[in-house]
């Protein structure tokens, strides 16, 4: 491992994004715009909106970062640049951490903006204050990035990578407790939800909205989300083969 190569990779990925203004604009603004849309959906029901929005703040960065990361690393695999890099003195973890760092930075800005819009324009009130919400949103962005890195190994084209959102992200969104409390789900589904990372990011958001203090459960939820992310990174590094 070499921090210099990790940072150089992160810098390079961010430079690529900087040149792609449209992607940057979409990534940064879409979650905020969706939240505004949601506010209009719950037009005369601010209480329910306030309950749902923080959970959305845990879901949006995860899904978007998952998509962006899986496609950009897939491009690296198909354009030959990964081929070239793997003959160079960069460790696979440098590569993975570089990507994770760059996209987590992007995810953090995105989540920060969405939080800002929620707290100011949309009058969201959370019992625990803004800090836990922002921390969880960033952790969710990190998790989305790492899952995207891992999953890109299982897709051979951008077409497949986009489709993987359906089987990987949608079931997690359906079972995380957003639509119906997890206690009401079929028992085996509760077990499934219990091992899915998104459930923890949504649980953490629930904690942050309901509890005035920073609870141990909240810390634990965030740690679990981060642990999933690191596990995905390491697994992702394993899926990159120097020899094919």
């Amino acid at each position: 491992m070499s921090p210099a190569r990790t940072f150089a990779t992160a810098r390079r990925v961010l430079t690529q994004l900087r040149h792609d203004k449209r992607t940057l604009l979409l990534a940064l603004l879409v979650p905020s715009l969706l939240l505004i849309l949601l506010r209009l959906v719950f037009y005369d029901n601010l209480i329910q909106f306030s309950a749902i929005t923080p959970m959305m703040l845990g879901i949006f960065p995860l899904v978007m970062m998952f998509l962006i990361t899986s496609i950009s690393t897939l491009r690296e695999r198909t354009s030959g640049t990964l081929d070239r890099l793997l003959t160079q003195p960069i460790s696979k973890l440098d590569f993975m951490f570089g990507y994770a760092l760059a996209f987590t930075v992007l995810g953090a800005i995105q989540a920060g903006l969405a939080c800002l819009v929620s707290f100011t324009l949309l009058d969201i009130n959370v019992a625990g204050g803004y800090l836990p919400v922002i921390v969880i949103a960033i952790a969710a962005a990190f998790l989305g990035t790492t899952l995207g890195l891992l999953v890109s190994a299982f897709a051979t084209s951008e077409f497949q990578a986009v489709q993987l959102v359906m089987p990987i992200m949608i079931p997690q969104i359906l079972t995380c407790g957003l639509f119906s409390p997890r206690e009401h789900m079929a028992p085996f589904l509760q077990f499934f939800a219990g091992i899915m990372p998104l459930s923890y990011s949504v649980d953490a958001m629930k904690q942050a909205t309901q509890s005035i203090t920073w609870s141990n459960t909240l810390t634990l939820d965030i740690v679990i989300v981060l642990a999933f992310g690191i596990a995905a990174l390491v697994l992702g590094a394993v899926t990159i083969q120097r020899q094919e």
Partner: peptide
Amino acid sequence: RSRISYMTQSLSVYADL
């Protein structure tokens, strides 16, 4: 790895840099 270089048949450079 620091003594060899490999130019693949596809361009293997970043088009968006």
